[in-house]
């Protein structure tokens, strides 16, 4: 028997014992020609500290993470930009806080300059109470940003028609909500999410509403290509543990989707041979 010599892997990150491995290479998420191993996109809002945020992001395995753009505060401690850079996480600036297409364009242009990326998570919301997307302003902003050369990932309603229109104007993905931002209500209209997935020619990322791991898994089982969440992790009692749970849930939901679930039956179907 010949022994094969296997060289030590260079600097492979330590995995906690028993943690499932991310699907390596075989099943990447591809957005605008860029491949990601992780199908979990995270936000950074709501974390109790930058230290806990960093630990949670690393535990989540995310490779793409949103940041907001705000006025520089002279007494800010630490920088989320540095945090992402040192962990090799790609920043995805958002236009949170914008209510009109004009606001969103200004914010996107500043974000491109600040973060040296033309990727933008487009958010144009209608009011502070629901933070629901304003479909008219959203579509207008998306079209103009695409024309300006941005790679646009719009946060949208769970409306299959609007999702189609966003794709038609050139968005690189569509990000329908499961429920309002920060609500933890889960996926309120799974049927619409399935309709969006069925027709989409770009990745579908469930965005907002996810409260716990089973809901992230459900999004993937419905056929979403990725899950975007923030509050569910950053405001969990143990953000790092929840980040790990979300990583595993997204991987499990994706695997279940690819595996093809059994049909639902009304009556039992014996799984053991009949007694002779």
């Amino acid at each position: 028997m010949t022994s094969t010599h296997s060289p030590a892997l260079p600097d492979s990150p330590a995995e906690p014992a028993g943690a499932p491995r991310q699907a390596a290479g075989g099943d990447p998420l591809v957005i605008a020609g860029r491949s990601f191993t992780s199908r979990l996109i995270t936000g950074t809002g709501g974390a109790p500290s930058l230290r806990i945020l960093e630990d949670a992001l690393v535990a989540s395995g995310t490779e793409l993470t949103t940041v907001a753009l705000r006025r520089v505060s002279p007494d800010a401690e630490g920088s989320v930009w540095d945090l992402l850079r040192r962990n090799g996480i790609r920043p995805l600036p958002n236009t949170a806080g914008c209510f009109t297409a004009g606001d969103a364009l200004r914010t996107a242009r500043l974000a491109r300059e600040a973060l040296e990326t033309d990727w933008i998570k487009l958010e144009v919301v209608a009011d502070d109470r629901t933070l629901l997307p304003d479909p008219v302003e959203l579509l207008d902003a998306a079209e103009r940003l695409v024309d300006e050369g941005f790679t646009v990932l719009p946060y949208t309603n769970d409306d299959p028609v609007l999702a189609r229109r966003l794709e038609q104007v050139g968005c690189a993905a569509v990000m329908p909500l499961g429920a309002p931002i920060g609500s933890g209500l889960g996926i309120r209209n799974p049927h619409n999410i399935e309709l969006i997935v069925e027709q989409a020619g770009v990745p579908v990322v469930i965005d907002a509403g996810i409260g716990t791991a089973s809901e992230a898994a459900l999004a993937m089982e419905l056929g979403c290509d990725a899950v975007m969440l923030a509050t569910a992790v950053t405001r969990a009692q143990d953000p790092v543990l929840m980040a790990r749970a979300m990583r595993d849930a997204v991987a499990a939901g994706r695997a279940a989707r690819r595996a093809g679930r059994i049909p639902v039956r009304r009556y039992a179907q014996a799984s053991s041979p009949a007694v002779d």
């Binding site: 950074t44 809002g45 709501g46 974390a47 945020l53 753009l69 705000r70 958010e123």
Partner: peptide
């Protein structure tokens, strides 16, 4: 003059 930077959000 507005000077902006990335902060936690989204």
């Amino acid at each position: 003059i507005d000077v902006l930077t990335a902060v936690q959000g989204g």
